[in-house]
Amino acid sequence: MMSTLDTLTAGIEYALYAAGAFFFLAGSVGLVRFPDVYTRLHALTKADNLGLGLVCLGLAVRAGSPVVALKLLLIWLLVLGAGATACYLVAEAARAAEVAPWTRGERR
């Protein structure tokens, strides 16, 4: 028997999944479409991390346990930290290697 509350939580949960999935898709599309390393890094760090956050949130809603929710949050934070660090490292290396950033007007 599904109560209204359950339906509501399920709705929220699925909406969060959908949003997360959307951002994952956007991140991947960005990775493919964007013209150079730096812009692709943008897509990777922002869209995917958001997508992951939303999915985590959805899962936390589903799990309904504060401990699991806390853990999911921690994982997300960890991914954020690791992602940002990795992203910075790659960008810095690209700078050091003098990879010229793409500018508008250039064709890919």
């Binding site: 997360g20 994952f24 991140g27 991947s28 990775l31 390393v37 692709r40 890094l41 990777l44 995917d48 991390n49 997508g51 992951l52 999915v55 985590c56 899962l59 999911l72 994982i75 991914v79 690791a82 992602g83 990795a86 992203c87 790659v90 290396a93 690209a94 290697a97 990879v99």
Partner: peptide, 20 residues
């Protein structure tokens, strides 16, 4: 570096997949 980005992408999506 561009190729590494793919690996990093899998890092994030991998977390999501694992959690799901």
């Amino acid at each position: 570096a561009d190729r590494m980005l793919s690996a990093m992408l899998f890092g994030t999506t991998g977390v999501a997949l694992a959690l799901v």
